[in-house]
Design a protein around this nucleic acid. Structure first.
Lengths: 235, 235
DNA sequence: TTGAAACTGTCATTATTCTGTAATTAATCA
DNA sequence: TGATTAATTACAGAATAATGACAGTTTCAA
């Protein structure tokens, strides 16, 4: 079965050239021309690799990358960027990319890196990578791939999609306050805006699951007027 | 336990700086100053990552890389090179490297790539690809080669191709939620998209075959908004 | 042509998510 | 310190969207 690649690039001459060459290599290529499309296509289908230009309309590449990582931590992501600066690369790698190429790039090198990443993806999903997607704090454990949690008092529960996604966001940003706006954007998207009560409900739920004393949280803090913060006890 | 890195580099000022920085990051670093030493040390010990300068005395980097790959080793290898030419990179990646950096490079980027590669190595070496011919859970047994199943209540049935393929996917990923998109892509391919009801039907069928109580499944769980998960009771 | 397998549509059934309101708590300022 | 204001907590339904169940239709291969 052909491997599928999502190519996110707004400049027609470039994406057509890349698409053509990738197809010659035997990949099945889907193109998205802006960040919104990218997220939409990512959600509606499954890919073995995502190639992501940083500078794209509507939602920039970094944010697209973060959004994707909230749902799926496995797909390899390759960044493309017009600039060759170290900060850009570092930024990209930190937001969860697996590789980075600066434009203009050599086609053969590009194709080689693509095939490495696709192969890696296979290796990862074949062997089952435990532990990369779970997180522990206190006596609690969150398993992102099975959507299950086990808590300090020995209970095992399964969380819903939203619960998991928001929890993941908080854990990834642990130690930092995440604003309500950011939460709304990252979890609910850019057009849907549920009432702000809704977020509280999720925090409430987390405290019920994980805190020994709900009224005096040790992990899930609210910061008045700003947002919420998750903090793990020890590292 | 600290991850071990084999650093192959002949220039003292460079390898000392890198060694120091890697050690600060918590790695255990072994240095080799030429190709011969590199191969020797590689053979006598196990590393999570090999960092390989191309231009080193006695045996050059490419050859060292090929030699290591001949041992059928999965260790991630990162090339360092003084030149930034595309041919060099291509050459390196073709001989089996996983990443490539040109000197002079940004230290932070270097350390980030190192940590990515080390993590990847862990994921790869975790479990060898299992290749199953049959699988048992509860009182049920699935035989993938004969397409037959026998169930807890003593029945023997044979499954259709699709049924088996999807069942195998779920079992291979047991314990993890498999998204509908992934199922569609892996079982049906990228051009055919049956209605999402279809997948439910297969799950339904599995529950009929294997579950004692269809309404309270013990093995085939659905995770709303995400996909399905198979879980075997004991291991 | 026949039968098994695969797919689709519909409606019933739930799990999940959202909203409104009241109670509580924290922050600010006189 | 106490009064005032603003934000958060806490529930309990209500609304929504996803899945379960099944019957009927199509497809494909023998």
């Amino acid at each position: 079965m052909a491997d599928r690649i999502l190519l996110v690039e707004d400049e027609p001459s470039l994406y057509e050239a890349l698409k053509l060459n990738l197809e010659i290599e035997g990949y099945n290529v889907t193109v998205a021309v802006d960040g919104e499309q990218a997220i939409e296509k990512f959600k509606s289908s499954h890919f073995q690799l995502i190639i992501l230009d940083v500078m794209i309309p509507k939602i920039d590449g970094y944010v697209v990358c973060e959004t994707i990582r909230l749902e799926n931590s496995q797909v390899p992501i390759m960044f493309l960027s017009a600039r060759n600066s170290a900060e850009d690369k570092i930024n990209g790698l930190k937001t969860g990319a697996d590789d980075y190429m600066s434009k203009p790039f050599n086609l053969e090198e590009f194709l080689l890196r693509v095939s490495l990443l696709v192969k890696r993806g296979h290796a990862l999903t074949d062997t089952g990578t435990e532990d990369l997607n779970s997180f522990e704090f206190g006596g609690n454990k969150v398993d992102f791939s099975s959507f299950e949690i086990s808590t300090w008092d020995g209970e095992v529960k399964s969380l819903s999609k939203r619960e998991m996604k928001l929890l993941k966001l908080l854990i990834e940003k642990r130690g930092k306050v995440v604003s309500r706006e950011e939460i709304l954007q990252k979890i609910w998207g850019y057009d849907v805006f549920p009432s702000t009560r809704t977020i509280d409900n999720y925090i409430l739920a987390y405290r019920k699951y994980f805190e020994e004393n709900q009224r005096q949280p040790k992990y899930f803090f609210s910061v008045r007027g700003v947002g919420y913060k998750f903090e793990a006890d020890s590292e």
